[in-house]
Design a protein around this nucleic acid. Sequence first.
DNA 1: GCAAAAGTGTTTGAGGTACACCCATGC
DNA 2: GCATGGGTGTACCTCAAACACTTTTGC
Lengths: 223, 223
Amino acid sequence: MPYTYDYPHPAVTVDVAVLTVEDGALKILLIRRANPPFEGDWALPGGFVDIDESLKRAAWRELAEETGVHAGFLTQLGAFGRPDRDPRERIITVAYYALLPARQLRIRADSDAADARLFEVAALPALAGDHGQIIARTLSRVREQSADLVLPLRLLPDRFTMSEYQVACECVLGQSLDKRNFQKRVQAAGWLECTGEQRRRGAHRPARLYRRRETAADSAPIQ
Amino acid sequence: MPYTYDYPHPAVTVDVAVLTVEDGALKILLIRRANPPFEGDWALPGGFVDIDESLKRAAWRELAEETGVHAGFLTQLGAFGRPDRDPRERIITVAYYALLPARQLRIRADSDAADARLFEVAALPALAGDHGQIIARTLSRVREQSADLVLPLRLLPDRFTMSEYQVACECVLGQSLDKRNFQKRVQAAGWLECTGEQRRRGAHRPARLYRRRETAADSAPIQ
DNA sequence: GCAAAAGTGTTTGAGGTACACCCATGC
DNA sequence: GCATGGGTGTACCTCAAACACTTTTGC
């Protein structure tokens, strides 16, 4: 069932960079490609956009199909379209990224992924095509956007401690932060509310649990 | 000569928002569409990406073809791909923007543009399809990026006065700035060098002329 | 001499950075 | 009682904001 056009059309894909923090390190979700091209290489989850589907929805679907991960929030990074970026045909990809709590990830390789797992961004394997560049651009964008400490909240579960929040920020920014200044800044900003609950873990003083105060952006659906 | 594929392919276009400052107002370059769809409506210059051409080069070419404007620097805004954004077929567009000195623009409508001219961004005509949203996103991005006052330098010719620079910044940011603080900030930043020349215009003290100090980014070609 | 834009410093307040000790708990 | 991470306050410094007058020219 061929589809014909009067002039050549590129194919359009989406790729998704899922970032998370686990064991004090920033990690990214990669799949091992089960099919050519780049078969056996690690790559960002992604695939072709259906003809009646929005870009964001395609990104959401492909991520779910290949890795089992359901991303609540996807942000567009941009389009990558070097003519030679895929050996099969001209493929233009639109990259998205998401920041998710590690514990929320139920990763299972599926669809045309032979495997799927997290890699530390500081120790990435060889990557298919231009995915290394896409990841580099993602990291640089996420770091820029995290300067105000809001974005890293997406890496945290519903309830979290100040230390967890601080570690998330430190992992994203790649620098350590002063505990007292961090607390002051975050408290003053007023994005958080203290739940009143505490978490007892190990031989030390219990930590207060916080949650994000609801914002308008929290109720925006995937379109 | 039809081109056939095993599954449906969207078409991919590029659109370019050229911003400039003229007569103390921020303006954008629009074309009047000579052909369907949206025939007769005003729109961003743009068109289909050739199959062997990079996205940025396509943006550069389409801008030149339709308006005669040659943009030295194009920055990608992002991809817009709502399935219903074009009535003909599924079209995904990648938007670019450029900031150019008004005097450098030699606008002539050509190709499939019935007309081409600048509009104040504060008084836009009815626009084709989702171009209004693309422009809104462009403006918001350019304003964000102009907070440090570097980007508006692109709106200025080789030699310029402090007042011209300040007006450019004010037009982009949409707020007036204090002359003394502006001068202090810009001088301290060290992006400019004083040429030693002066410009006498009208019945008042002559203005010093400055030029941008060369940076690495200035030598990056369109790829 | 007067109109018009160019050019110039100081004061103040806000926010970011540096820095060290006590607290509550489990074992 | 001791090891472990949780929680707290102050001093300083930097940078941005507010603010008004003199200078140089053309007519």
